[in-house]
Each structure stands twice: as structure tokens, then as C-alpha cells.
Design a binder for these strands. Structure first.
Lengths: 113, 113
DNA sequence: CTCTTTACCTCGATCACCTAGGTATAGTGG
DNA sequence: CCACTATACCTAGGTGATCGAGGTAAAGAG
């Protein structure tokens, strides 16, 4: 079957995913993709063309910072959260909570009126 | 504050929301918007420019059918699920479950490797 | 008789995301 | 030693979902 991304959309939650993943520690682009796949049990398999530009954008926005990995054989740009990134992550988590609760209650057919 | 939609972010789950809402019974466009708002406690406040075209699209796709409400004073196009619509809803529910589980486990920082 | 609410509709812009393409290095099997 | 695969990075441009803005009309409220 189709994993969510690849054929489908990450649906506006890309930033949250990237920030959350980098909350466990610095990671480079290719590694981010792999870990996202692992943690979601294959469900989230984002293309490079999605992830790299997003990392650049988050860095420009001041939520991430990066350095070329020192002492590594292969060239790797390693990203980590800035203070602003942690704040943003917190906001994203709350938003996800609100959003998923809202969608969940509609999908499960809860009438509130 | 910002509700999720309006600033956007319903991204990709629109069909699921509309089908799920109509699963509780036939409803017209304006009513769909209002009920979505109620059931999500104001969180999902979708603009008409989003909902009406989506209903038309779902009808063209054979997932919904509509009639002009008989005996109503005001003109209302009432939508209800077709058999295909119920099937699609079931699929959408599963997909939401998989997607939200995946995002949830990334956001909560679960390492599976 | 005006204002607000209900109720419908569509065009066009925006922007997030993906596809497709490209570079280069390190390890592996023959 | 040479091809192949995996790692690792990157971007230009297309596409399509969603929304903003605008428009019509009838009904109830004041």
C-alpha cells in the first residue's frame, strides 16, 4: 500500500515533524528522512525534494542552525534546534493536539450541539 | 486567535471531514460548515470557498448525491452519502488513523530503532 | 425599508509539496 | 580496477488543493 507521503501529502505538518525529530538531537538531512521513516514505521517517507528545502527554510527562519559535520568522512550538514526552534516546536505540538482532537471528534461522529 | 482553518491547515483531510459529517445524516452546505464548527468546538471553521467546491467535487466523484430540499422556504441543496461514499469514508478513517498515529509518534519523540 | 443572516456560487491567486533532474564520494562485488 | 549501489547534498519548476474575495438572492428583525 501507499505510505502517506510519496503519493500523498504531509498535509501542512512538515515543520512540526522536522522540529520534533531534531528535538532528540542534531541530525543531518538524509538522516532526518531515515529516522522519520523509522519512527513512523515506514508511514512517513518524505522525498528529499521536500525535506531539504524545508530544512533551509527553517534555518532561514531562525528555528534551526547547521554546521558542516567536523571530522566526518562524508560531507554532512548537521542541523539542530535553536532556542526559537524549541519555542516553535512547543507551539506546533499544541497545534497538532488541537487539530488532531478536532479532526478526531468529527471523524468519530461526536455531536456536541 | 487562529482557528486551524482560516489560516489554513485542513490540508488533505477535507474529504474525510465532509464525508464523516454527512455520515450522521443529510445536510446542506451552510449547515455542514456550521456543524463542523460545532463538533470541533470552533477549531474547524472552513470558508465557503473551500467547502462548496469540495462538495461539488465529491458529488462528481459519486461519493455524495444531492437534491434541492423539498418544502423548504429557503433554497438548500442537501447532500447525503452514496454507497461509494460510505466505502470512501471507511478508507479515509483508516488513513487518518495511520497518519495521526505516525505524526503522533514522531511528535512525542518515540525512537523505534 | 434597510440591515443582517442564511444560503448558494465561482474565479483566480497563493503556496506547500513533489517530481525530476543533477553532483559527488564511499563502499562492494566481480 | 571498475561498475554499481548507497550515501549525501542540492534546486528549478510544475501542480493542485485551499482560500480570499467577490457576487446573487431571499427572509426575518428592527
Amino acid at each position: 500500500m501507499d505510505t502517506v507521503a510519496g503519493t500523498e501529502r504531509t498535509k501542512g505538518h512538515l515543520d512540526a515533524l522536522l522540529l520534533a525529530l531534531l528535538a532528540s538531537g542534531p541530525q543531518h538531512g538524509y538522516g532526518v528522512i531515515a529516522e522519520l521513516r523509522d519512527r513512523s514505521e515506514g508511514e512517513l517517507d518524505l522525498p528529499e525534494g521536500t525535506v531539504y528545502p524545508a530544512l533551509h527554510r527553517l534555518e532561514r527562519a531562525g528555528l534551526l542552525e547547521s554546521t558542516w559535520a567536523p571530522g566526518t568522512t562524508r560531507r554532512r550538514r548537521v542541523y539542530s534546534l535553536t532556542a526559537a526552534g524549541w519555542t516553535a516546536l512547543s507551539a506546533e505540538r499544541h497545534e497538532w493536539a488541537r487539530f488532531s482532537t478536532a479532526v478526531g471528534s468529527v471523524l468519530s461522529g461526536v455531536a456536541s450541539a
